[in-house]
């Protein structure tokens, strides 16, 4: 995917020429405080801008198909339809599968996103699932669209830290298994650093810094990036290490 000089405006201009490129199989982080324009950037790529906003300049090119997941799955899932049926429906439309084949495919996708007790879960309604389960269902819905590029808008922000870790690990392995490209949006640089090789820093609708995550974290150039880094509250190293 390549975004070049993207401008989005409503009554005033909100994105002032955002550029961002994602190579095949690459994971790029998009960070910035709330209101910096992260969601609008992803929505513009999907053609899902809120009413009253439009693209006023620049270009967006996507090789292949893009799908998106959101912070709050409940606003996206249909509360009145069993989650298995929602995923099956997308399989029918996108892959042209029969009713029966699409049900089987939905269960396969539930396996891909590491949902346990799949047959039982598939019959539940969204409100009957935990936050982590809902996010996995949303991910299965996205995968049902057979995307080459997955746009992730703060998908772990509302989750508990252990569940967040599982979802981040899941995204990393889906990327490795399927060669998916990822754009991962977060206000938290520490979360982005878990997953992304490159990071783009957005402030007030403008890119202020971009580069390899390792370099940006070690040697931030822009004062705003430094502020974001300073905001990450540090924890001392755990004796015995990560997996000890």
């Amino acid at each position: 995917m390549r975004i070049e000089g993207l401008r989005v405006a409503g009554e005033t201009e909100l994105l002032h020429g955002v550029s961002l490129a994602v190579g095949a199989g690459e994971a790029v982080g998009l960070v910035g405080e709330s209101g910096s324009g992260k969601s609008l950037t992803l929505r513009a790529v999907m053609g899902l801008l809120p009413r009253g906003l439009r693209v006023t300049g620049g270009t967006v090119e996507v090789d292949g198909r893009a799908a998106m997941i959101f912070q709050d799955p409940l606003t996206f899932l249909d509360p009145l339809v069993r989650v298995g049926d929602q995923v099956a429906e997308v399989c029918r439309v996108v892959a042209g599968l029969s009713r029966r084949a699409s049900r089987v495919r939905a269960l396969e996708l539930f396996a891909d996103v590491r949902l346990d007790d799949r047959a039982v879960l598939a019959r539940r309604y969204p409100h009957q699932l935990s936050g982590g389960q809902r996010q996995r269902v949303l991910l299965a819905l996205a995968l049902a669209q057979e995307p080459d590029l997955l746009l992730c808008d703060e998908p772990t922000t509302a989750l508990d830290v252990t569940v967040q870790r599982e979802v981040l690990d899941l995204l990393a392995s889906l990327r490795a298994e399927r060669g998916l490209s990822l754009v991962f949006v977060s206000h938290d640089l520490a979360v982005v650093a878990q997953l992304c090789d490159r990071v783009v820093v957005l402030r007030d609708g403008e890119v202020v810094e971009a580069g390899a995550t390792r370099d940006v974290v070690a040697r931030p150039h822009h004062p705003y990036t430094r502020r974001l880094l300073d905001a990450v509250l540090p924890l001392p190293a755990l004796a015995g290490g990560r997996d000890g």
């Binding site: 830290v161 252990t162 520490a190 974290v217 070690a218 990450v232 755990l238």
Partner: peptide
């Protein structure tokens, strides 16, 4: 407690 602490995302080393 240990599992909770291990799950926290941490930044790589800063200069």
């Amino acid at each position: 407690s240990r599992r909770l602490l291990q799950a926290v995302p941490r930044l790589p080393e800063r200069a």
